[in-house]
Design a protein around this nucleic acid. Structure first.
Lengths: 222, 222
DNA sequence: TATTTTAAAAATGTCGACATTTTGACATTA
DNA sequence: TAATGTCAAAATGTCGACATTTTTAAAATA
């Protein structure tokens, strides 16, 4: 029963990360070693190693002799995260347009179709929609071919998801209203296929910044 | 003697990181726990926590039951790192140009002057020159005002320094020849002050990519 | 000789224990 | 009441020990 290809820290890392991103652990919340050990059924060392990795990713902070805490959020950080994310996404797409081949185009069209069809459905499962939405944006940037830039993109998405999760907790009902702006998605696809870098850049930055004001409001009420 | 404001992991983190970036620990080199414990005078847990943080920063990798290793380098990664770094730097400067005020301008001029004066000296200490060089580029991007983007920039610089360090080890003598291209620096300053985003972007990307071919050569000989 | 087997040595990852520090509850003082 | 002090309870960070696994080196086999 002691076998596994991964060590214990690696095994719990994703769960722990998700529990932070999903908002199960709230910003500034203390992460008690004892509680976490019980929750994830691990010992001190692997747990602290996992927390150390999340520290390096800015999801967790530690104060000496005072333990670990979920890192704080703020309106300034919200804005900065989304703005940076917008710039990076724009960069990725521009590079995609420069380098993307027929297969990239085809995948964009396919992903757009999947998202579009689902958006027009009657009963929309928000998880499924988010999945297709994410895949469409990923298809757009997939031509960029820079592992490091993708990595940067992913880490920013992770961080922005934290804010989105917190907002979702407060507004479960009309979650779908957040960004089911199918017109923008269609426009993004068309402009990308036309290789109109300037126009795509402008539109994608606006698209990504859309939820910021809504989340800001919900955030400032806490 | 047990007092300190930081915990042990945090205390050794910078040393460990620098020893990797400076190339004292070579790519793929095994990082023996026992050896490191003796070198940094720490116990197992803090050491492993520091290594965990470096794992999250892609400077270290671990294989289960086979320990930690300095992460590998490659020509593909070299290119990707520098290209990404060039794009990010360009983005930072463009934002600086959008937002920079009189103080930003003044600091750019000052940093440029310090670098320029030193570059014309007889005996150039490479460390001092690198310091002034780094400060000049930092002054250029300082107007951007995005903590997250700065963070991304820093982590890319760290990673690119690893490649530069390895190159320096092989070519200590004419190290100064690498990038003492004072004309480009002067041009960067002038274009930035003229707020010519397009021209600065183009030049900074070229400027950053300059050493890539040289390092590539030196790397492919290993 | 070259390959496989075997056993000893070394190293890793995890746990529990403990010294030190922080926290929280209660009593004391102003 | 509010502020300060006291002290037990709780939590943290570090260490050493140990079960497992990997590595190394020598012996056995083909």
């Amino acid at each position: 029963m002691k076998n596994s290809r991964q060590n214990t820290a690696a095994q719990i890392l994703d769960s722990l990360k998700n529990d932070i991103i999903s908002g199960e652990f709230l910003p500034m919340q203390k992460l008690h070693i004892k509680t976490l050990k019980e929750k994830y059924n691990v010992g001190t060392s692997p747990l602290r190693e996992a927390l150390s990795q999340l520290m390096a990713k800015d999801l967790v902070v530690s104060k000496n002799q005072r333990g670990f805490y979920v890192s704080d959020i703020s309106i300034e950080d919200l804005t900065d995260i989304y703005q940076t994310r917008a710039k990076i996404e724009s960069l990725c797409i521009e590079m995609s347009i420069d380098k993307g081949d027929d297969y990239w185009e085809a995948n964009v069209i396919a992903a757009s179709h999947r998202l579009n069809k689902y958006s027009k459905q009657e009963a929309i499962d928000i998880d499924e929609w988010q999945s297709r939405h994410g895949e469409f944006h990923e298809a757009l940037v997939a031509g960029c071919m820079s592992p490091r830039l993708f990595q940067i993109r992913s880490s920013l998405i992770e961080k922005s998801k934290r804010y989105r999760s917190l907002w979702l907790r407060e507004n479960v009902s009309d979650a779908a209203t957040l960004s089911i702006n199918q017109n923008e998605h269609a426009a993004l696809m068309i402009l990308a296929l036309e290789r109109d870098k300037k126009a795509v850049s402008k539109l994608i930055e606006e698209h990504i910044m859309t939820p910021v004001e809504i989340i800001k409001k919900s955030l400032s009420q806490l």
